[in-house]
Amino acid sequence: MPDPSAVAVFADLREEGRELDSLVGELPAVDWARPTPASGWTLAHQIAHLHWTDRASLLSLTDPDGFGQLVQEALKAPDSFVDEGAAEGAALPPAELLARWRDGRAALDAALAAAPADARFPWYGPPMKANSMAGARLMETWAHGQDVADALGVLRTPTARLRHVARIGVRARDYAYAVRGLPAPAAEFRVELLAPDGGGPWTYGPPDAGQRVTGPALDFCLLVTQRAHRDDLALTATGPDADRWLDIAQAFAGPAGPGRAPQNGPQDAPQDGPR
């Protein structure tokens, strides 16, 4: 019988893709050239990047040798392969890019559903199970969807699907330190987040932890995907280690990103990984 938690994240990934599709599916071609908050990336770059990463995920699930070739190509240009992949897709006519992204999402959905539950599949970091890969794809889809929504001036309603993003953000705590060459705190943190639907809270870590982060789940997800500066978010850190974490947190793999500037501050710098 399928793992209910895996089935849930697969369904949530499909819904996250549909929500973003509803923002871009009927746009005129000229709007695909709109700049987004990610420096140098248009709306087309955002969708192209998602398509590129969906294709990499599909190869990981169905063609490990083919995925290995992608990794070798990335190693040749570790500082530019993300931008190059996005630029290649963004150069396509918008209708073609949209069709490819839709087809890729459908193929990935089928491959995730067919994947053995306990199998681990190669990735740019540690190998992942299918449900973890789906959670990572949801995180990226939501984060890049936020850039698209911001570019279009659309205010999205946060949903319970953010629990997948929040969980990755918490689990990636030590990675944020490691990628910056910093030692991670030895003790676990307590994270308490107010669910977007008014339920919750979503809690992580021991209740008696001395280092704590509290606030809305949406704000935490915006922080760990580096879609907003902490100064613009209603997050509270208790303890110096928790306070430091909020300055460097990132849910995505890859080099440390500079994050977003505070609102009305200077434009953010180019970065690798999810922008």
Rank of each mutant, 00 (worst) to 15 (best):
Pro94Ile: 02
Ile248Pro: 09
Arg190Ser: 08
Ser132Cys: 01
Val191Cys: 04
Leu138Arg: 00
Trp142Gly: 08
Gln146Pro: 03
Ala95Thr: 09
Pro240Met: 03
Pro196Ile: 04
Ala114Ile: 03
Leu246Tyr: 02
Ala114Phe: 02
Ala91Glu: 14
Leu75Thr: 13
Glu15Thr: 12
Ser5Tyr: 05
Asp12Lys: 01
Ala184Tyr: 10
Ala253His: 09
Gly40Asn: 06
His164Ala: 04
Ala56Asn: 15
Val82Trp: 10
Arg167Gly: 06
Asp150Met: 11
Gly135Trp: 01
Thr53Leu: 09
Asp272Val: 13
Pro240Ser: 13
Ser22Arg: 15
Leu58Gly: 00
Leu58Met: 00
Leu193Tyr: 05
Ala111Ser: 03
Leu235Phe: 03
Val71Asp: 07
Gly125His: 05
Ala195Tyr: 03
Val30Met: 05
Asp65Met: 04
Ala91Asn: 13
Glu15Leu: 14
Met133Lys: 12
Gly254Gln: 03
Asp83Gly: 15
Ala253Ile: 08
Leu222Gly: 02
Val82Met: 11
Phe67Leu: 10
Ala48Met: 01
Leu23Val: 13
Asp21Ala: 11
Arg34Phe: 05
Asp232Ile: 12
Pro255Tyr: 10
Ala95Gly: 14
Phe10Arg: 11
Gln226Trp: 06
Pro35Val: 05
Pro216Tyr: 07
Ser132Asp: 07
Asp241Thr: 07
Ala160Thr: 11
Asp31Pro: 00
Ala117Asn: 10
Gln226Asp: 09
Arg173Val: 12
Met139Leu: 15
Val224Gln: 06
Glu88Tyr: 05
Ala242Cys: 10
Asp109Tyr: 00
Asp243Ala: 15
Asp21Leu: 14
Val191Met: 04
Thr236Ile: 11
Asp31Phe: 02
Gly254Cys: 07
Asp208Ala: 13
Pro126Tyr: 02
Leu97Cys: 10
Leu50Phe: 00
Phe252His: 13
Trp142Ser: 08
Ala113Pro: 00
His45Val: 02
Trp123Leu: 14
Tyr177Leu: 12
Pro122Gly: 10
Thr36Leu: 02
Gly66Trp: 03
Gly153Lys: 10
Val191Pro: 03
Asp83Glu: 14
Gln46Ala: 15
Asp150His: 12
Ser132Pro: 00
Gly210Leu: 11
Gly125Leu: 13
Pro116Arg: 06
Asp219Gln: 10
Arg167Ser: 12
Gly254Phe: 13
Pro258Met: 10
Ile248Cys: 09
